Simulated scan of single mutants.
Amino acid sequence: MAFPKPQYLFLALLILFFLSKLSFAKQSRINGLKLNVIDRCWRKNPEWKRHQYQLATCSIGYAGKMINNIGNDLIHYKVTDSSDDPINPKPNTLRYGTSIIQGKVWITFQRDMQIKLEKPLLISSFTTIDGRGVNVHIANNACLMIFKATNIIIHGIRVHHCKPQAPGIVMGPEGKVIPLGQVDGDAIRLVTASKIWIDHNTLYDCQDGLLDVTRGSTDVTISNNWFKNQDKVMLLGHDDGYVRDKNMKVTVVYNHFGPNCNQRMPRIRHGYAHVANNFYQGWLQYAIGGSMEPSLKSEANLFVAPTIGNKEVTWRKSSDKSGGTWNFHSIRDIFENEASFNITKGGDVKKPNYTKEQNFKVLDAKFVKYLTSSSGVLRYNKNYVY
């Protein structure tokens, strides 16, 4: 039997190598057309696992770039134990990484995990929870809280079936045990937090809401998430009497709301929200609402009204204090299935006034289904990200 000469074998292997590279490049170009600016920043890199910290440079909106979460002093912590002890967390558990480890911490997971938290998980400043490449669920009891903390990334986690928690003590940031009052069953709750990026998570079926930004929290970007199967989805602002939330600034971009979402996508109190390039797959009561004179710039979103029921996107709570003064503006939104948007008449559209590092281009609403097509936790197969 004749064997090919070594030079021919080498040539064949070389051709196969370049063909595979060309195939990957072609696929990358195709995928690049569908990727939003955040995902283009890291998903097109086939070596993203080796360069996972690149993610911190990809954020947009009010959170800005999360470069404070990376650097030479960064600690890489891997979760290998799915158990939870809220008072004395064990090494290798998620709570140990978010509370005991000091400094900049980048948390990943060894394998697929189902984590049932015994008490709310308080996350320290300069912490990244990165669920890429595995399938991590935090579910069926307490969930996540960011309390008086800053510079936090939550990426690639499924959080669902969260339940209210009675008052108790819990290990908090910097390894300090702190008392917590009654906690509602929210998936993720921000309390007096700043510079927070919540990206590519899947949130659903919680007893209260999916995401609350409250008590003076600000500089928050909520992007690429999938919110589904929920009554109250997203609350921006603690309550009508909490005036510190007037300084709240939140970017809501590239998210998918639905199916089976009822209201608060988001509901805004006092502060300002830039809601752009999101896909609204129906609602029951309303999609976007608020009270206490909030400001909203709804820009290039796709609103698909429910087949039966309320077609109006917005809801406003009237009160004597607010005097019915609103600043709700719709710019380049697309409305399907007879959806409508009750805009503020007169007055200027309040701009987000982003800094250079926060700024991004809002694309035409006709591209929203592409921009949000991979919202929620991503799927992974070797080097490919879906």
Score class of each variant (00 low, 15 high):
T192C: 05
W48P: 14
G324F: 03
P46A: 13
L378E: 14
P4K: 01
R189H: 14
Q165W: 06
I153M: 10
W283N: 04
I222L: 09
C41K: 05
T93V: 03
P259A: 11
L74G: 07
F109A: 10
K78F: 04
N342T: 07
A12N: 11
D199R: 00
W283Y: 09
Y62D: 13
Y354K: 00
T221V: 07
N151V: 04
R332M: 04
Y204E: 12
N224M: 00
Y384R: 12
K369N: 04
E118K: 10
K78Y: 00
G324I: 04
A63S: 15
H200L: 00
V134R: 12
P91F: 05
F328D: 02
I188Y: 05
N69G: 10
S374I: 10
K317A: 06
P6T: 02
N36G: 12
D130M: 01
V37C: 04
F17V: 15
K249T: 03
L190Q: 09
C162H: 06
N140G: 07
R50W: 06
R29M: 14
I331E: 05
Y386F: 15
K351V: 08
I331G: 00
F303I: 11
P86F: 12
R29N: 13
H76Y: 12
S298Q: 11
M234V: 14
V79S: 06
A276I: 06
P91Y: 07
I343C: 03
D73P: 09
A149C: 08
D208N: 12
I154L: 15
S217N: 10
I75V: 08
N260K: 12
T344Y: 07
A300Q: 05
P179Q: 07
F341D: 11
S217D: 10
Q207W: 05
S295V: 01
M292N: 12
K104Q: 09
N92P: 00
L180I: 02
H76T: 11
T307M: 02
R29V: 15
Q102N: 02
S23Y: 15
R43N: 10
G185H: 03
G103F: 12
T202H: 07
I87D: 01
V253A: 13
L33S: 15
P266Y: 03
Q263L: 07
F335C: 02
L33Q: 15
H76C: 02
I15L: 15
N310E: 09
I178Q: 09
N381Y: 09
R316H: 06
W197V: 02
V377F: 04
S59I: 08
W326T: 01
H274R: 06
S322H: 00
K148Q: 15
V159Y: 10
F24M: 05
R267H: 03
S82E: 15
I30T: 15
S217K: 00
N301W: 05
N224A: 02
A12V: 10
E174F: 08
N247E: 14
D84A: 02
T214V: 01
F18W: 08
L211C: 07
D320H: 09
L211S: 01
P120K: 02
N45A: 14
I67E: 14
K195Q: 14
P179C: 13
V213M: 10
Y96M: 00
F279H: 14
N260H: 13
N88W: 04
H329G: 01
P120M: 06
L122D: 11
L284G: 11
H329D: 10
T314M: 08
R189N: 11
G156W: 05
